[in-house]
Amino acid sequence: MNPLKKMVTMPWFMREHRWTRAHLSEHLDGELPPEETERARRHLHDCSSCRKLLAALRRTVSGLGGLREPPPPDVAERVVSRMNKEP
């Protein structure tokens, strides 16, 4: 059997697989504590599926960061103007 396929059938591998997938965003954001970061890294080293998902999440988050659009001009001034008209 292919070594990778063999690994996937192992309970410990699947346990780490599920855990890593559930924590990929935290890993991406650098918000896992050091020991859990290491845990994620170990699994990512062995699991191409999780590496692909991590890469896809990285691209997604990067794209989302580019969605910010400037608001129309003078929003604040119109708020102040409205407040001054309020009783």
Binding site: P70, P71, V75, A76, V79, V80, M83
Partner: peptide
């Protein structure tokens, strides 16, 4: 405070 936060809140 309005001038500081209006644009972000709008977004």
């Amino acid at each position: 405070l309005v001038r500081r936060h209006a644009d972000s809140l709008y977004s």
